[in-house]
């Protein structure tokens, strides 16, 4: 009787261990799109900073609005400025259009 009780306990432990391992493995089976989105967000941030740096004389403080055409080629990027608006902190609006 005691032996039977022990084997039952062992079986229960083994079954719960297998179930736990399965749950952990199944949870990690799909990588999903979260990583892809996070990577894309970083790429967009990098692209924007590169565009602003190459197209605008950056003020010490303020806000910059731009609209540009982006042409990636040979691991480089060409930016063509379409519109820009620079709002300096505590100063008047300095908005202007690139093609004007």
């Amino acid at each position: 009787m005691r032996k039977n009780g022990n084997t039952m306990k062992r079986k229960k432990i083994i079954t719960s261990m297998i179930l736990f391992v399965l749950c952990v493995v199944m949870g990690n089976v799909f990588a999903g799109n979260k990583e892809m989105v996070e990577k894309r967000v970083k790429e967009l941030d990098k692209l924007n900073k590169e565009a602003v740096n190459s197209l605008i004389d950056i003020p010490k403080e303020g806000r910059i609005k731009i609209k540009a055409k982006v042409h990636p080629y040979d691991h480089k990027i060409q930016f063509d400025l379409l519109e820009k608006e620079i709002i300096l902190k505590n100063k008047a609006n300095k908005g202007e259009k690139a093609d004007e």
Partner: peptide, 21 residues
């Protein structure tokens, strides 16, 4: 053919912070 980029960026002490891209 390239693509269009539209952004709002704030600057504090010459450091850029992308608000909307």
């Amino acid at each position: 053919v390239g693509f269009e980029l539209e952004s709002h960026t704030s600057v504090e002490n010459y450091i850029l912070k992308s608000d909307i891209v």
